[in-house]
Design a protein around this nucleic acid. Structure first.
Lengths: 182, 182
DNA sequence: ACATACATGTAAATAGTTACATGATTTC
DNA sequence: GAAATCATGTAACTATTTACATGTATGT
């Protein structure tokens, strides 16, 4: 799903400025989609040209004037058509996994750091997800499901990380010594 | 981790041609790193220029001649330095999650398809991972860990998908009707 | 005084993918 | 006769990020 449709999706939920869309993404979508100002603003300009969104300028006291975008009926239809045609593809890119593939080349202290850092990262993710889940009551069932999904995956890998942390370090040290002997 | 270092990593495990590196990636790394011929061949050319890999041409009967690359001691050092400095970052991009965020906009049949397709996808992934795990005995402990990690995550979400599939469809239909009444 | 939050936007750089070009051999 | 596997490589395209440019207000 590209940035244009992601912006339309965000505007389906609420009217918002480019800046606010970025925040919406950081809060709700950041776990599975990335966006930056450099892609949001050009996308909103394109969508506006195509008549898929409209905007009004809102002057604020003590804050810069902002452009608040609304999705138009055509925009809604466009988003809907695209959504229905979107295949549920996924991709997971992980340098952590690459590091583990080559764990036998890493110094023991570095490996220790890597595992610790990964655990912290997964724990933090888990806290954010459970936080949203408990704080927000106005979520759609689908949104609630995305949270459950993230919690399930992260809980499982966190348990694995805790269980296997120490044994793994030992196994890898043993493996290194076997390699040296031969 | 960029394509240059990924190629060095592959060549750390075995001498290989560009074509074979692609296959190695498809077999072992595809779950967490993507590569294509369009990036591998230029990368090998660059690495060769920099003296980080060397190659010999191997003529084969009934097969095209291939360039078999080997990592040089400098290449090994370069890979090692980069590996130690690599932060264990991760990113997960998912159109499935986007679809679920907007599940209340999807027709019931399409939502059904999406959930089914996701389950199939996770099941397939799980089969591949358990297959590698049981067939290969010569894996390093780190490599074995990456398999365990993938299996843990996929098992957890598959269970969730199975458990929540039917109830979720109902909840979303209810939510749609509530929205219409208001 | 410095960082962060608010707010919009552009341009260069990056890093890849997709498609193309070429061609033998084997399997269905 | 078509599709898949083996094999290398280039070039155009795409989509994005990063950095820059500009400015106010608030908190530390």
């Amino acid at each position: 799903m590209d940035i244009n449709n992601l912006c339309l999706g965000a505007l389906c939920l609420n009217d918002a400025s480019g800046y606010e869309i970025k925040k919406m993404f950081e809060d709700s979508f950041s776990h599975f989609q990335a966006v930056s100002f450099g892609s949001i603003y050009p996308a909103l300009a394109r969508l506006s040209e195509q008549g898929l969104v409209s905007f009004r300028e809102e002057t604020q006291e003590k804050r810069p004037t902002k452009k608040v975008f609304s999705i138009t009926p055509e925009g809604r239809q466009h988003f809907f058509d695209n959504l229905v045609a979107t295949e549920p593809a996924e991709q997971y890119r992980s340098d952590f996994m690459v590091l583990m593939m080559f764990a036998h080349l890493l110094p023991a202290e570095r490996l220790e750091q890597v595992l610790q850092s990964q655990s912290k990262h997964v724990e933090a993710e888990l806290e954010i997800l459970t936080g949203i889940s408990s704080q927000c009551c106005e979520l759609t069932p689908g949104m609630r499901f995305t949270l459950e999904y993230g919690i399930a995956a992260n809980t499982a890998v966190l348990e694995l990380l805790k269980q296997r942390h120490r044994p793994l370090l030992k196994e890898i040290e043993q493996h290194k010594q076997q390699g040296n002997k031969r």
